[in-house]
Design a protein around this nucleic acid. Structure first.
Lengths: 252, 252
DNA sequence: CGAACCCTTGACAGAAATCAACTAAGGTGG
DNA sequence: CCACCTTAGTTGATTTCTGTCAAGGGTTCG
């Protein structure tokens, strides 16, 4: 079992170059489990007993307070989520639920901390991963505070295109209501804003996005590495922007 | 010189229990420098050549885009800022400037990374520190997305009171325009909102805050560890909420 | 076939940004 | 020591934006 997991887990930057003994210690008490869609994996406020790695599927990380709820990230393979709570042995600050059937690897937080303490190389990987998570969250906050809703949406849509190789069209990777929540607006507001983007060079038809006037749309989105991240780093970040890499998302 | 610094630096959780040899390596090429108020220490987009530690004074961490600008944090001694960029050898995502005369310790990022790689204990400290920074930024984002402006303000004001030992009154640690920016609103809006809080149990007179009806005000603020942090953790986080600990801030 | 649920659209109310004017306080230089 | 200047803060009027409520279309799934 460990060997089967190890193969998938090796793809993770977090374990890159880590000694086999460390990996074995991390995996010996780990669970590799498949969950149906819409299952709550993590409850905010609960003690962080496990580090979660998503191997397959899609997970929404969200937070709530006083009836309200907001999507903080959508995580796709292969990456970790809520690493920070695990290493700190602190309560989760965010909840998580599957959006699709998902395969999740659960590593006991105590084992994680032990591995950090004993394996220098692994510790360095955790540092880099955590720093990436932090930078993702900084970008998220910056987006909320420095861009208008139309700009946020345009930046998001153009970013997706760029990640897929500057394709002119693609399919939205997540439901619009989740997108709306992620970007800090209501679904109604997103709907209206998307419609209005037609005059800025981007047409949205259902789940399909078509960039009709790239130059004009780029001017509105005004992508910047400091707000949107270099492509490379985006895929390193554990808790990051939705990363639509599956074939399904390419426009037919 | 190193010994003089080492004494101050030892207060930092980041260096707690770290071997003297590591500390010496970190400090041998470090600068310990005093800056006047309103000096830019860090420019976003620039390569992260140094880890910054604030030993005395007050530093504003902020970000800009397209004319707009937003305060992301106000940092007080003794803590680090922009640790993530340093360990990743990546461009700063945020700028920083002094708000008062401040004493800053600058440690070359390369030395920092070398120390992480060679000293396991230090690496663990960095992991914990970074995780704290991450959690602070998550809380900041959650505040923006889950609370209304009045709630954000009330939570901030009550948090300060709590940090100072549940005092009924105190002096605001930073200018209101910076507070407004930090909380994602205009100064005008903050001004009006502050005034309106009188009917919710908190009177603001200039820089002075007086909680007149604690029960009522607590109900509005609705503090939660998941949004505001436990007192302990707040002071651990490197990039964190403004922490008004100086005597000046206690109400006469 | 019906029941959810997502998305859209419209009408409205509320909140926030903007613009402008004014006050107050602190610092500078005569 | 005072006049002046700069800047933070406040207040008001107005516009723009956003959330809310309500209704209807479309899809999926039992």
């Amino acid at each position: 079992m460990i060997d089967a997991i190890a193969e998938d887990v090796r793809k993770l930057r977090l374990f890159d170059g880590v000694a086999d003994t460390t990996l074995r210690k991390l995996l010996h008490a780990a669970y590799d489990q498949s969950f149906p869609p819409f299952v709550k994996l993590v409850e905010e406020g609960a003690p962080a007993d496990f580090l979660h790695l998503i191997l397959e599927g899609m997970v929404e990380v969200y937070a709530g307070a006083r009836q309200r709820e907001s999507t903080m990230a959508v995580v796709r393979p292969v990456s970790t989520f809520i690493l920070a709570a695990s290493v700190r042995d602190a309560p989760y600050l965010m909840s998580a639920r599957t959006l699709q059937r998902s395969r999740i690897l659960l590593i006991p937080s105590a084992d994680l901390r032990a591995a950090i303490a004993s394996d220098n190389h692994f510790a360095m990987n955790v540092v880099v991963e955590l720093a990436g998570c932090y930078r993702s969250m900084v970008r998220h906050a910056k987006n909320l505070k420095l861009r208008s809703t139309r700009e946020r949406i345009a930046a998001y849509l153009l970013r997706q295109s760029r990640i897929l190789g500057n394709v002119p069209g693609y399919i939205l990777p997540v439901e619009k209501r989740i997108l709306a929540s992620y970007m800090g607006m209501t679904p109604e507001n997103l709907s209206r804003a998307l419609k209005s983007l037609a005059e800025d060079g981007c047409k949205i038809d259902g789940q399909r996005v078509i960039i009709t006037d790239r130059a004009k749309f780029e001017a509105l989105a005004d992508l910047s590495p400091l707000l949107d991240g270099p492509d490379v780093e985006a895929s390193q970040a554990g808790v990051s922007l939705p990363l639509p890499l599956s074939d399904l998302q390419r426009l037919a």
